[in-house]
């Protein structure tokens, strides 16, 4: 490498064996070095479906966060929202990789992200709702990150699959930051001005019907997450209203009308060039 000028070294070292040297992201096998055997007694199909659903939550959320790019209210928020989006994208890739190993198809991450239709996604519907204003996006982030953090902390210690447990342990560290960031903003907005208070109250009302779906029948998870949310809304002088949940369940394949257009955008280039390598 010529190190007297960063630009000079660009065309060096590019034989085919050394092609993917934009290091850090070019892994062929994202779970390399990890024992990937599925433990005895674990249902592979169920494990794969679970990883896929958690991956779908993360991908759809990351896509929504990417839509904030260049539209955030302040540069610090540009950086923070992108950071959270990148964390979730990273979680997506690990979870899809695990799904591909255990569902027996050997599919890679891009097969799941780019070549499934909306009907095949199993994310919770709260993730796919449009961004709305900053109050909606940040309140949704609070709800989703509080829920996902509780879930990941539990998986990190109790998941029967050690790979999923490791992914969850790594993700929990990231999600703790996401939750803190969102909570600080919800408190600021709830306490701030009449307008910010009104917008955040509206956001909570719009989100409330989609909260129930996060817990399915898991009462313990519900209690834990709602307690966290109450702590934040109390500090913000707001209330998460108790409302009737929307019928159906994202995990069962029920979708809002918003997922298909989100995926159409996400998948447009990949599907226009199905033979291409990127």
């Amino acid at each position: 490498m010529s190190d007297d000028h960063v630009y000079l070294s660009l065309a060096e070292g590019h034989d085919d064996s050394d092609a993917r040297w934009a290091f850090g992201t070019g892994f062929e096998d994202p779970l390399h070095g990890v024992d990937q055997t599925v433990p005895e007694g674990t249902d592979s199909a169920q494990l794969a479906a679970f990883c896929l659903a958690l991956g779908d939550d993360a991908l759809v959320s990351a896509q929504r966060l990417a839509q904030w790019c260049t539209a955030a209210p302040e540069l610090e928020e540009e950086v923070a929202l992108a950071n959270i989006g990148l964390d979730l994208l990273g979680q997506t890739r690990l979870l899809y990789a695990r799904a591909g190993q255990v569902d027996g198809t050997g599919r890679g991450e891009d097969a799941y992200a780019y070549f499934r239709d909306a009907d095949d996604f199993r994310n919770v519907r709260l993730a796919e709702l449009p961004n709305g204003d900053f109050a909606f996006s940040i309140t949704r982030l609070l709800v989703l990150s509080s829920w996902r953090l509780a879930l990941f902390e539990r998986l990190a210690t109790t998941a029967s699959d050690p790979v999923l447990a490791a992914i969850a342990a790594k993700g929990a560290k990231e999600l703790a930051y996401h939750r803190q960031y969102a909570a600080e903003w919800v408190v600021r907005l709830g306490d701030g001005t009449e307008e910010s208070q009104r917008r955040t109250r509206d956001a909570l009302a719009a989100i409330a019907p989609y909260v129930d779906e996060l817990f399915a029948d898991d009462g313990e998870l519900r209690t834990e997450v709602l307690a966290v949310l109450r702590q934040v809304t109390d500090a913000a002088g707001l209330v998460l209203p108790e409302v009737a949940p929307v019928p159906g369940h994202g995990r069962d394949g029920d979708r809002t009308e918003h997922l298909a257009p989100l995926l159409a955008e996400l998948q447009s280039v990949a599907r226009a060039h199905p033979e291409a390598t990127w």
Partner: peptide, 24 residues
């Protein structure tokens, strides 16, 4: 939002985030 692989999406997202950081 349209990057054709998750790897390219992560690279581009991080790059654009870096630019916001440079601006700051």
């Amino acid at each position: 939002t349209r990057a054709p692989s998750l790897r390219r999406k992560a690279i581009l997202f991080a790059k654009v985030q870096d630019e916001a950081g440079h601006g700051l």
